[in-house]
């Protein structure tokens, strides 16, 4: 049950990555760093300004989106359409730079933020659940829903999907694919920032947290299918549930082991994931 809640947040962390890949064929290995800045935004709000982190979610989105646009303009713009080794290395470089900057600003210590739900629990049948995690799940699920509405029901979202389908065809019918790409990347990064602030209400942040989040994000995307947003969200939930079951029945230090096994299995036998349709 709490695996489901944790998984929902993994889901929203991964949805942004999946979106950028679906539209631009870019794997942003610095996605975890965008999450980290979202987490620090929550810390700043809670510890320095005394505002509940959940109230600044739109600002967290903006923080992520702005850093994302900078990333895109400086680095990823040159790699659109090619998830190559060079692109991965550039993204990792990007991640390291963002980590150093965070280290300079915030120091290396782990920090937490408290929302009105932090540290409160409710008992639900046999389950003992954190309120912060329930709220985080609700926000993650509704944000994912909102994003898929945006992509399916608005003219901009349809243009994004057209670019994802066929960039050249999109261009010749008059869609400016560069601005669509920047917008999609900003959305992807903004989602990371928002998810970070939600996460920090129950999970402490350090400048290097991104690299420990990234494996989970990648696994969620692989299980769900890179490029499929709903699938990725479900992939995140699978990760959370499997982690918790392993921790309960086996050993919490080994909770990630079955996930890596699953990752290898998917790569070997079903690289498009449960819901992905595109083979690269």
């Amino acid at each position: 049950m709490s695996g489901l809640l944790v998984g929902g947040v993994y889901g929203i962390l991964a949805v942004g990555l999946s979106l950028a890949f679906g539209v631009m064929r870019i794997i942003n290995f610095a996605h975890g760093e965008l999450v980290m800045y979202g987490m620090f935004a929550g810390v700043v709000a809670s510890r320095m300004l005394g505002i509940d982190p959940l109230l600044i979610l739109p600002i967290s989105f903006l923080v992520g989106a702005l850093i994302g646009v900078a990333q895109y303009q400086i680095v990823f713009r040159h790699f659109v359409g090619q998830a190559t080794l060079q692109q991965l290395l550039a993204a990792i470089g990007c991640a390291l730079v963002l980590q150093m900057i965070a280290q300079l600003i915030f120091g290396a210590d782990a920090r937490t933020a408290t929302s009105i739900f932090s540290g409160q629990y409710i008992v639900f049948g046999p389950f003992f659940l954190s309120k912060a995690q329930i709220v985080a799940f609700v926000i993650a699920a509704s944000t994912t829903l909102a994003v898929s509405l945006l992509l399916n029901a608005t003219a901009w979202g349809k243009a994004v999907r057209a670019v994802a389908d066929d960039v050249e065809a999109a261009e010749i019918v008059g869609i400016n694919s560069s601005t669509v790409n920047i917008g999609a990347f900003a959305l992807s990064a903004g989602l990371a920032g928002l998810a970070g602030t939600v996460l920090v209400t129950y999970f402490p942040v350090t400048p290097v947290i991104g690299f420990s989040l990234m494996p989970m994000i990648i696994i969620a995307c692989t299980i769900g299918g890179l490029g499929s947003l709903g699938g990725t969200f479900i992939g995140g939930i699978c990760c959370g549930v499997i982690q918790q079951i392993t921790a309960m029945m086996w050993n919490s230090a080994l909770q990630d082991v079955p996930l890596y096994v699953l990752l290898l299995a998917f790569i070997a036998w079903r690289p498009t994931g449960l819901f992905g349709s595109r083979v690269e």
């Binding site: 349809k158 999907r161 057209a162 389908d165 066929d166 065809a169 999109a170």
Partner: peptide, 11 residues
């Protein structure tokens, strides 16, 4: 080169 994952109307 129609957009395969978009409906006719959305194309």
């Amino acid at each position: 080169r129609v957009f395969p994952h978009l409906s006719v109307e959305d194309n």
